[in-house]
């Protein structure tokens, strides 16, 4: 099938909103939701969900920290869903095309953050000149650098989309489409591995094993594992709080006995 102009407009708008959403209200701030909405716009919600879900697993729980640019698979989910629907070649194939788009977004993300330094400089100047309202406006203009950094490439990729996908399908050999399918299936391990690096996994390694055993051997569905995890987390929490209270009563006793003063209110992190 081919894509209609109104679909291109809606999806471009979605690309613009997705990044602004992530930076502000954080309601549709994930590839899964964006994939689902792209699927609704393209009239194939199942494909949109599958593309979004696979890309979601690649960026699992890894958002942008302290300004590091991550692959933007929300944008990838839009392009991937469209390519999956118009090519009819299946989800995994489309993911093979969507991943490079998400990776390209890293460069454009850097560009947007860099362009925003212009607004920073204007803010600094306006403050010096005591023009608070002008400075305030510049604190919002980043909307356009961020939004267009996603909307423009999506617009271009969708306008040329039909031809590009057809051209790719003509030249791409079978071993490569098969290979892309396998890649689509194993790409989620990157997200999982990054997450395990980010979390203090070694300290909680036995819980990793419990989750694995529940799913792999006992065939427990994901929601069940989450509930199991919640129960274990609650046990952990109550024990920690008990420990804390014991410590507190101990120090209180010490206070009475030796007039010990505790001036260390530092954070541990």
């Amino acid at each position: 099938m081919t894509i209609q102009w109104w679909q291109i407009l809606l999806l471009t708008g979605l690309a613009f909103w997705a990044i602004i959403d992530q930076l502000t209200v954080a309601v549709l701030n994930n590839p899964l939701a964006i994939g689902m909405i792209s699927g609704i716009i393209m009239g194939d919600i199942t494909t949109g969900l599958a593309v979004g879900a696979t890309l979601q697993l690649m960026v699992l729980g890894v958002s942008t920290y302290g300004g590091a640019s991550m692959p933007d698979f929300m944008t990838g989910a839009i392009v991937g869903t469209v390519y999956a629907v118009i090519s009819g070649k299946g989800v995994q194939f489309a993911i093979g095309l969507a991943v490079p788009v998400g990776l390209l977004m890293v460069q454009l993300d850097v560009l947007a953050r860099f362009a925003n330094t212009i607004f920073q400089h204007r803010i600094d100047t306006f403050i010096k000149e005591n023009k608070p309202n002008a400075a305030a406006r510049n604190a919002l203009w980043g909307t356009f650098t961020w939004g267009f950094s996603r909307a423009l490439p999506v617009f271009i990729l969708l306008v040329v989309g039909n031809d590009v996908v057809k051209a790719i399908l003509r030249v791409i050999p079978a071993w490569l489409t098969d290979g892309l399918k396998v890649s689509g299936h194993i790409l989620p391990i990157v997200g999982i591995a990054i997450l395990l690096r980010y979390l203090p996994t070694k300290r909680f390694i036995s819980y990793l094993a419990i989750g694995f055993i529940a799913a792999a051997y006992l065939k427990m569905p994901m929601l069940g594992v989450a509930l199991l995890g919640a129960a274990l987390a609650y046990i952990h929490y109550t024990r920690e709080v008990e420990k804390l209270e014991m410590k507190q009563t101990n120090t209180e006793k010490q206070n009475e006995d030796e007039e010990y003063t505790n001036d260390e209110g530092e954070y541990e992190n």
Partner: peptide, 23 residues
């Protein structure tokens, strides 16, 4: 800290289940 720790524990459990179900 106790809340953060418990949340991490829950997260790690779920990740353990992810490997066999989605790959």
């Amino acid at each position: 800290n106790a809340i953060t720790d418990s949340a991490i524990l829950l997260g790690v459990t779920v990740v353990g289940a992810l490997v066999p179900t989605v790959v």
